[in-house]
Amino acid sequence: MTEFTLSFIVGHMNYWLFTLLMMTGLYIVVDKGNLVKKIVGLNMFQTAVFMLYISMGKVTGGTAPIFPTDMNIDPEAVYSNPLPHVLILTAIVVGIATTSLGLALIVRIREEYHTIEEALIQKIELEKATREIREFGETMGGPE
């Protein structure tokens, strides 16, 4: 089992802080009824995940993974791991693509429903569904 020594706690504090941030974002997505806020929460959730990735690439004493321009590479130099950076670059782009699509959908929803509050939208949809059931329901025993 893990021993909770000081170095373990200090060495893992970053992960735990990012977890806290992630969960804050996730909470906003799940709990908030405002659609724009949901998107903001989603962004926050994703950014915290990116932090987790980037922090695992860090090497103590390392620098950014860019060689000198003349390509005279100092064999002693320590570089941080570039692979998480590459993955997160891709993920950030995917994130902004999702955000812009989500916002475009919000604009359309607002035009059709005149609100961007989940509770009100659900109310409108419930009313619509009730109306439909009154109009289209009871096929089984309905008059021929």
């Binding site: 812009s100 916002l103 475009a104 604009v107 607002r110 035009e111 005149h114």
Partner: peptide, 12 residues
Amino acid sequence: AIHYAFVGRAPL
């Protein structure tokens, strides 16, 4: 294009 699309919408 996204900017155009957003700007092209009349605010309701």
